[in-house]
Every structure is written in structure tokens, then in C-alpha cells.
């Protein structure tokens, strides 16, 4: 009992530590005062003004397009690579996985600089495309590491059975393999999307002067003070994802629950 209490208490403290800044940001989004350190009363003003602020809206659009596109392409490349790697012998697979780990283990600043140098060396103008390519690069490993465990759990006989029953390999793949690994593919996509959204350092080095994502926009405002509209936007994004995750969990729980009595 004491042990259980202590466990709960400890988890509570850690959650408080991890979520305190988030609570502060949500509170700031309702703060009528423009200053970060003064409470000027409750307001919805920043939520109204957010949608009139073209700069922030442009940065948001860029961020979301890059996050979605890079996650999608990374998911396609990464899933294909994971399937191929799964069929390789140990040595080539180990080598490929070691390379896969490089962007995850490497420092963001080094990855960012190295990509910037290659883009400049190729006379490639830094901008939207260079950021997109950079994001795909650091997103692929997350997809591979999400799909790999699902591939390992696969029952190989089902694929064989499908073919014995006359399915072509491609048809069997879409009907048998893909449904089984799909949760891994989906979580890889979600993870990649989130990583792209939260990235600052690599974007900072590969973006060029013309475009801004939310991260780089916030960084330019660190010194002169963050616009409260940004707090409002972040609150909307955070709460949306929170609700989405709760919704997904509910549905999962419903599915796993025994069939309700009528």
C-alpha cells in the first residue's frame, strides 16, 4: 500500500515536472497583458487575433505541409526499407540498421550543418524543398523502428497460405502483410509527423531566409518577446492532439472490451 502510494506520488511529481511549462503556456494564452511576467486578466483576444495574423498563419501552413509531406514520404520509404531489411541476411541488415541509427544518435546541430553544406555544395537554394528533404531524412528512422517490430511478429504462414490459395504476391501483401503491420506504419507516420513539427535545429540550418516554420518564427521572437497569439496557437494544437489521443484510446478500449450485453 505504501509502495503503491509512493509509486503514484513519484509519477505525479514527474508529470508535474513535464507538464508544468505546458500549463504555463496555456495560462499565458488567456493572459490579457502582452508581457509574459504579468497577469492582466482573462481574455480570448489572442485567439481572435491569431487568425488575422498572416505571418503566424503562413508559418503554421508551412509547418503543417512540411510535417505531413515529410511524414508521408518517410513512411513510404521507411516501410519499404523495413520490409526489405527484414528479408536480408544478418550482416547487411546490421549495417543498414547502423546507418539508420545515425540520424537518431547524431547531434541535431551536426545533422543540420551537414545537410546545409550539401545543399549549398549542390547549388541548391535553401528554402521549402531543402527543409522538406531534411525532415524526410531524420523522419525515416522513426518509421523503420516502428515498423520493424511488427514485421518480426508476422506469422509467415499466412502469406504463404494466401499464395497457396491463388493470391499473387502483391495481392497477398496488401491483403495479409499490410493489415498486420499497419499499426506500426501508422504509429511511424504519427511519430514522424510529431518529430517534424517539433524540430527546430535542423530546420534552422536548412531553411534559408524566405520561409519560416513555427519553430524558427518563435526563435526569432525569443529576444524581443513572443507574440501571445503563438501561445494561443500552441494551446489549440496541444489540446487537439490531446483530445485525438483520448478518442483513439477510448475506441481501442471499446474494441478490446467484451461484447456488451444487449
Amino acid at each position: 500500500m505504501v509502495k503503491k502510494f509512493f509509486s503514484r506520488f513519484y509519477i505525479g511529481i514527474i508529470l508535474l515536472f513535464l507538464y508544468a511549462p505546458i500549463v504555463i503556456l496555456i495560462v499565458l494564452s488567456f493572459n490579457a497583458s502582452k508581457s509574459r511576467s504579468k497577469w492582466g486578466g482573462f481574455t480570448f483576444k489572442w485567439y481572435h487575433e491569431l487568425f488575422q495574423n498572416e505571418d503566424i498563419m503562413a508559418a503554421l501552413t508551412t509547418t503543417l505541409i512540411i510535417a505531413f509531406t515529410s511524414a508521408l514520404i518517410a513512411t513510404l520509404l521507411g516501410t519499404a526499407a523495413a520490409i526489405a531489411m527484414n528479408s536480408m541476411k544478418k550482416t547487411p541488415r546490421t549495417i543498414l540498421l547502423a546507418i539508420t541509427n545515425v540520424p537518431m544518435l547524431n547531434a541535431d546541430i551536426v545533422t543540420g550543418i551537414s545537410l546545409m553544406l550539401i545543399f549549398v555544395a549542390l547549388n541548391f537554394t535553401l528554402g521549402f524543398t531543402s527543409v522538406l528533404l531534411a525532415h524526410i531524412t531524420f523522419n525515416i528512422p522513426y518509421v523503420i523502428l516502428s515498423v520493424m517490430p511488427k514485421l518480426k511478429q508476422l506469422n509467415s504462414h499466412t502469406f504463404e497460405a494466401a499464395q497457396d490459395l491463388g493470391a499473387s504476391p502483391l495481392y497477398a501483401f496488401f491483403k495479409v502483410i499490410l493489415p498486420d503491420i499497419f499499426p506500426g506504419v501508422l504509429s511511424g507516420f504519427f511519430l514522424a509527423f510529431t518529430m517534424s513539427l517539433d524540430d527546430f535545429v535542423i530546420t534552422h540550418f536548412t531553411k534559408g531566409p524566405e520561409i519560416n516554420t513555427l519553430s524558427t518564427k518563435i526563435y526569432t521572437e525569443v529576444r524581443k518577446g513572443i507574440k501571445p497569439e503563438i501561445y494561443a496557437l500552441s494551446t489549440i494544437m496541444f489540446v487537439t492532439v490531446l483530445l485525438l489521443l483520448i478518442f483513439i484510446n477510448r475506441r481501442k478500449a471499446d474494441k478490446n472490451a467484451p461484447i456488451r450485453k444487449v
Binding site: 508544468a20 505546458i22 503556456l25 499565458l28 510529431t194 519553430s215 526563435y219 501561445y231 494544437m237
Partner: peptide, 29 residues
């Protein structure tokens, strides 16, 4: 835990509040 939802909660969810903003919030604290 029956699902890994708690792990998602502590690791993935905070990332939806921008990393720079979360660090700036520590200034406030």
C-alpha cells in the same frame, strides 16, 4: 499498463507544444 498510452502521454504529447516554447516557459517559472 495495458496499452502504452501512458508512455505516449509522457513522451509524444509534450512535443505538440513547441520545444522552444516549453523552454521559454521555464523562464517564467
Amino acid at each position: 499498463l495495458k496499452s502504452n498510452s501512458f508512455i505516449v502521454l509522457i513522451i509524444i504529447l509534450p512535443m505538440w507544444m513547441n520545444f522552444l516554447l516549453r523552454t521559454i516557459a521555464w523562464q517564467n517559472i
